[in-house]
Each structure stands twice: as structure tokens, then as C-alpha cells.
Design a protein around this nucleic acid. Structure first.
Length: 559
RNA sequence: CGGGGCGUAGCGCAGCUUGGUUAGCGCGCUUGCCUUGGGAGCAAGAGGUCGGCGGUUCGAAUCCGCCCGCCCCGACCA
């Protein structure tokens, strides 16, 4: 039984100045959250209720596939992180601290190290496999740039699950079960989403899937083919680059291009479209010189580069010169010692083009691209909207979204360095084959608000609303309010009574802002009757008070 | 880390260019009157290290220097 007059909250009339995203503005104005520091928020009672309801849904679905809940420690010793190499790999994103004895610790940005260590200690036989454990726990990542309220936090709540197996098939089974559970979670939150093939990133492993909720403020770019359903994030998406407009191939010729070296300048100088220019990007990849040939209107994708090379950087002009090439006028050339030439797929549909002549102030025009020397055809360029689907040649469209979940097949990336072994049927010691599965619980709060709001405020789905019903009394109606409060509460609904000494308008505006799915107005002038308004549809009905519960429940079905 | 912006009462802002009374305004808050179906009205109040430190000056919210914090774009990012 919650009374507004005693409730720990305060709604804001104006937008907070530091908020940009609508979920950020609304969560603050509705008094759900309050910022403590950059990327760090307190959850006030209203926001806390939402968070706990989301956690409950996540918990139910994880339990439903046999997950075992546990709690790992937030603070942990450096040792296990040093074993996997991530003490250094994680860099400044991981916050490190020392205890009074000067021992290194960190606040967990994730928990593979800890759970793998534990599994190695607890699980010793194949007979105990597979295992699926999870926790709903606060993580800390010292993000360089926290953003958009709860969307990119430094301190956040994540449900992270880990599974342990003795075979890839067993891992696949669990992986698919988790995938199903995640779908059910997002559906119960009434979110629209896409399951997308993704880049495993530094977590490691082979295949991974992201769960992306379309939203304006999303940080992930997704490409989707509406024809065949192909979906992938920009980091792994591939495409068929549409062929450029037909142009008669001129005779091969060396052309004087004085001080013209950027793609734009070359294109303008030669009066050719940018896609006719072959860009030669010179990088040092894994200590070796690499020339990457890309269509002039395309860019290299950093994630793809990061996956191709564990380390890479652009070459300096001096390094290019030392290879006998001319910066600004580089073109593919055979026989350069140590140089690998990688031809990007963006050139596939180009039959002729312009390359650097490897001579100061000269380019080659009319180069038959099938004659270009290369060592390998690669996919390192970024897909752009309008490219063709790699599967069906439909047109790809792109949208941005929030990554709310990510599932990985890790293999033995952690179990080997941490020496987490089990004994198989033959008594051999083998490292666990692992999977890990994350859902950003705090991020889901903002994802729901991003998708469920209007100009007046939040429109919470029934499943996660901080309270299902707000009762607004008008006049002397206390006994009637108590009757309703008791009736609805005992039916399992969360009820909030706005008993503040405020004018009705104030309460209506706050009710819309906070986003209670159902609003009841009990007016002394309408004895025995109650007005019911549904936040989502705006539908309003006046019913006898005995029928309130039924009407609400019937209405909620349509919500 | 690069670029841009901001920091003055619980919240949103003005004042700063051109230094000079007790630093203002709106919202909110307290008290009283009045009002009660979509952020009412009147009256009286409370509330401030002007982000911090240092400097210039007779005098600094205002000028100068350094630092800190927060937001946005980029880099980065399960």
C-alpha cells in the first residue's frame, strides 16, 4: 500500500539539462533514477521496482532452462585475471584497486575468470556436465564515455550466465536454450528486437549472437535484408557491393596528377566517380607490411581489421618510402619484399579503375583490375546501406539499436589458462568447453522506455510497471479508496495512491509521466463509481466499483 | 584521449562582454487565505562556499592562470 504523500520521490517539471535521450529525460523526470556521478546512478523506489521486475522475468526464464542462480564477488584478486591475460588486455576499462596489504584487486567488469576458477574447483567429472549457472550482479567498467542515462553506464546490473560442457554439441544445445530464453524475456518486456550474428570481440570465441532492440540512441548499427531475413551488425556484416555505373574503359595510361593524392582530389582531377579510384591503404598488421586495396568510396571497418590482425596501425610515410613506394601515389606492385597485398571484396564489381603509379605525381588510368597483383581477397570494408544482401541480393537497409544481450561460444579460451579441467570417460583431464551469456538488465530499463513512451511520459508495459494502478482520490473518498486498494492488492496488483494535497491536474500529469498502466479516479461526486483510464490506449470508462478489477484485467489483455 | 559546451538556491536559468549596493528570475519548498477534472491565484517567508585553488585589483560571480566535475560529437566499447 503505497501513498504518494509518504513516498520517496519527486517528479520534475522540466527536462534535466544533461539529458539528451528520451529515456534518460523521462527516467529522471519521473523520479526513477538519479545520477550520482558520470555513468553511475541510484535507483529510486520507482526505478528500483522496475529493475526488480525485470530481474524477476530474467530469473524466471533462466531458471526455466535449468540455470542455477548464484552470486559471485564483485571485487576479486588480480591473479586470475593475470592468468588469462586480461589484467592487461582489459586496460583502463577495468577499475583496479589495492587493499591495505597492497594486493591488486579489480571490480569485476565481467566474471569469466571467477566462474571458470570455481568450476575447475567444483566440477571434476564429465558426469556432472553440462552446467549452467548465472548471477544478476553489479558490474563495473570504467567506460571512457558513459552515455544516455542508463544506456552506457560504468556501474550497471547484468545477468551473466556461464555454461560448461564436454562437447561442442552439448554447448550448442545450451546455447540454443539460452537463445530461446532470451527471446522469451524480450517478448515479456514487450520489446521488438532482432537476433543478430555478431562480433565476439575481446570476450573471444567463435560464433556469437547479439540481441538488439531498435532505438534512435542505439550504438549498434545493424544491416538487415527484408527479403530473406539476413541480419548482422556492422562489425560482421558483409554485402555485395553494387557495381558502379558503366564507363567505357580507357586505354591504360600513366597520367600526370600533380599534387593530387587524396581519393576526392584524384576523382575530381580525373573527373571520375570516387568508386573508380582504387585506394591503397598501407598498414602494419601483426608486424608485417600490408597493402589493402579498397574501392575509393569505401572505408575499412575497424572491427573487421581488429579481427584480421591482433595488432595493426597505419604505416608512416617513412615506412612507405622505405619500401620503395611513394606516399600518396601508392598502387599495387609486385615483388615488394615482405609486402602482402590484400584485395578487398569492394573491388569485386569493378572491372577497371585508377591506381597510384608508384611514382610521384602520377596515377595509372584504365587499369584492368583483373590484372592487379594480390595475395588474398579479403572482407575488410564497411557495409553501407543500399548494398546488396550477400544471401539473396536484396537491398540491405540499416538501423541503429541497443545491444541488450550477447551470447558467446567461448570454447576453452578461459578454461585452459585457468586450468579448469574435468575428467572424461577415459580419465583424461580436459578443459571445459564454455559458453557465456549476458543480458544488460539496467540497459533493458532504458530500452523499454525508449520503445514505450509518448509526449506525456513513460508507458510501462504491464509486466514491468513500478505499480500497475494509480488511484487518484477526489474529495472525501478515503473509505472507497481503501476498499479498492485492498481489492486490487489482494488480486496481486501493485497499487499506488496519489493522496497528495495537490490539484487534480498535477496528479494527472504525474500519472502520465510515471506511466502507470492504469489510472483510477475516485470522485466523491460520483458515488460508488470509478473512472478507469488505460495509459497506453487512452481509453476511459466509468464503472461501478465492484467491477473495477474485472475491467482492469480485461483491459490489460489488450494492452 | 581529441573537438565543442556547461558549472550561480532542490530543479531550470539570467547576470559575466564593459569588475562596484543587501546576486536576480521561474519552478519547487514553508505558512496562511482561497481554489479543486489536466502542472490555479493572492500574501508572507526560508533557502547561495556564484565548482575549487591561486593571481590581478581599493574591490571579483564578472578579468587572468591552474585544477576538478558534468554533457555532446569523435576515438573507444560483451
Amino acid at each position: 500500500m503505497m501513498r504518494a504523500s509518504k513516498f520517496f520521490y519527486k517528479t520534475l517539471r522540466e527536462d534535466p539539462k544533461d539529458a539528451e535521450a528520451s529515456s534518460h529525460k523521462l527516467l529522471i523526470r519521473a523520479s526513477m533514477i538519479k545520477q550520482i556521478a558520470s555513468g553511475i546512478y541510484a535507483f529510486l523506489p520507482l526505478g528500483h521496482r522496475v529493475l526488480k521486475k525485470i530481474e524477476t522475468i530474467v530469473r524466471e526464464e533462466m531458471d526455466g532452462i535449468g540455470g542455477q542462480e548464484m552470486t559471485m564477488s564483485i571485487m576479486m584478486p588480480a591473479d586470475m585475471w593475470k592468468k588469462t591475460g586480461r589484467w592487461d588486455l582489459y586496460g583502463d576499462d577495468m577499475i583496479k584497486l589495492k587493499d591495505r596489504k597492497d594486493q591488486d584487486f579489480c571490480l569485476g567488469p565481467t566474471h569469466e575468470e571467477q566462474i571458470t576458477t570455481l568450476a575447475g574447483q567444483l566440477i571434476s567429472s564429465y558426469k556432472q556436465l553440462p552446467q549452467l549457472v548465472y548471477q544478476i550482479q553489479t558490474k563495473f567498467r570504467d567506460e571512457p564515455r558513459p552515455r544516455f542515462g542508463l544506456i552506457r553506464l560504468r556501474e550497471f546490473v547484468m545477468k551473466d550466465a556461464y555454461s560448461f560442457h564436454d562437447s561442442e554439441e552439448s554447448l550448442k544445445t545450451t546455447y540454443d536454450q539460452v537463445l530461446g530464453a532470451y527471446k522469451r524475456i524480450l517478448e515479456r518486456l514487450e520489446l521488438s528486437y532482432e537476433v543478430v550474428a555478431a562480433d565476439p570481440g575481446q570476450i573471444g570465441g567463435s560464433l556469437s549472437h547479439e540481441f538488439i532492440v531498435p532505438a534512435e540512441v542505439g550504438e549498434s548499427t545493424v544491416f538487415k535484408c527484408d527479403k530473406c531475413g539476413y541480419v548482422a551488425t556492422s562489425e560482421v556484416a558483409t554485402s555485395v557491393v553494387p557495381a558502379p555505373e558503366f564507363l567505357e574503359k580507357p586505354a591504360l595510361a600513366k597520367v600526370h596528377t600533380p599534387n593530387v593524392s587524396s581519393i576526392e582530389d584524384v576523382a575530381a582531377f580525373l573527373q571520375l566517380p570516387k568508386e573508380r579510384i582504387v585506394k591503397a591503404v598501407m598498414v602494419i598488421g601483426d608486424s608485417d607490411p600490408q597493402m589493402i586495396l579498397v574501392r575509393g568510396d569505401r572505408e575499412l571497418d575497424e572491427s573487421k581489421m581488429n579481427r584480421r590482425f591482433s595488432q595493426w596501425r597505419m604505416m608512416t610515410d617513412e615506412e612507405i618510402v622505405s619500401m620503395g613506394l611513394v606516399p600518396g601515389f601508392v598502387g599495387p606492385k609486385e615483388g615488394v619484399a615482405g609486402l602482402t597485398i590484400l584485395k578487398d571484396r569492394s573491388l569485386d564489381s569493378l572491372e577497371w579503375g585508377v591506381t597510384g603509379a608508384n611514382e610521384r605525381n602520377f596515377h595509372m588510368v584504365g587499369v584492368d583490375l583483373s590484372t592487379l597483383p594480390f595475395d588474398e581477397i579479403v572482407d575488410l570494408s564497411a557495409v553501407v546501406e543500399g548494398d546488396l544482401c550477400p544471401q539473396c541480393h536484396g537491398t540491405l537497409r540499416s538501423f541503429t539499436g541497443l545491444e541488450v544481450g550477447h551470447i558467446f561460444r567461448l570454447g576453452t579460451r578461459y578454461s585452459e589458462p585457468l586450468e579448469a579441467f574435468y575428467h572424461d570417460e577415459n580419465g583424461d583431464r580436459k578443459p571445459f568447453i564454455m559458453g557465456c551469456y549476458g543480458i544488460g538488465v539496467t540497459r533493458l530499463v532504458s530500452a523499454v522506455v525508449e520503445q514505450c513512451h509518448d509526449e506525456f511520459g513513460i508507458v510501462w508495459p504491464w509486466s514491468v510497471a513500478p505499480f500497475h494502478v494509480v488511484i487518484i482520490p477526489m474529495g472525501e473518498v478515503e473509505s472507497q479508496v481503501q476498499y479498492l486498494e485492498t481489492m486490487l492488492s489482494s488480486a496481486g496488483l501493485d497499487v499506488f495512491v496519489d493522496d497528495r494535497d495537490e490539484r487534480p491536474g498535477v496528479k494527472f500529469v504525474d500519472a502520465d509521466l510515471i506511466g502507470f498502466p492504469v489510472r483510477l479516479v475516485v470522485n466523491a461526486k460520483k458515488e460508488g463509481q470509478v473512472e478507469i483510464k488505460f495509459r497506453k490506449t487512452g481509453e476511459t470508462v466509468l464503472v461501478d466499483q465492484e467491477n473495477v478489477l474485472d475491467t482492469i484485467l480485461r483491459g490489460v489483455v489488450d494492452l
